[in-house]
Amino acid sequence: MSFLRTVWLIVRKDFLIEARSREVLYTTLFFAVSCVLVFAFGFVREGRPLEDAASGILWIAIAFSGTLALGRAFERERQSETLRALLIAPIDRPALYVGKLVGVLLLLFVVELIIVPLVALMFQAPLFDHALLMMGLLVAGTIGFAAVGTLFAAMLVRARSRDVLLPVLLYPITIPVIIAGVRGTAALLEGDPNIAVARMWLSMLFFFDVVFVTLALWTFEPVMTE
């Protein structure tokens, strides 16, 4: 079976399961929205949001709900040992990784579709003034975060205390992605948007994506072999 076909079949499988229950989507969405709301109470004083808070809140909400979604997505594979079945199947391990990654990415993009306008609204942040650049930052940042997250969540499926270990392992490693995302977004939100700086952070995010995805594809096979 070709690489792309395997990826497509895994994405379709995950999509069908999710479309029937919508469990991960709804819980993650609700979590992301409540996350933004909690920050709203913390960072809005006398009816005015703190300067520079919006970009940080947006990325923290993405990172937190991403962690939750990753945990849930693989918990489902664990419950009935379906991940083992996937690993036994005569398919390329990297294709399995890419399939799971695409599924997680699609879910996170839906979450972002909701929370980006929410943050823009609640923190009076002009997130749509440079929509294309903003979208680039979101896509590249989410790929970087999810690339590491998918690998770690997959390998933690068999580990004890995986719920705690996922964020413990994931956050220190993805800090460069978060820094680049937050700084790039903050540059766009300044009173006088700094396009050059935002572009620089975007190119850095692309670089992180390439390295993280390559490293993950490279380590997925030996890590998942028992």
Partner: peptide
């Protein structure tokens, strides 16, 4: 991870160390 990951955590930890 090594301390609380349970059996098999040595391979997982190796992945973390590389990253």
């Amino acid at each position: 991870l090594r301390r609380y990951g349970g059996p098999g955590s040595d391979r997982l930890a190796a992945g973390v160390a590389i990253f």
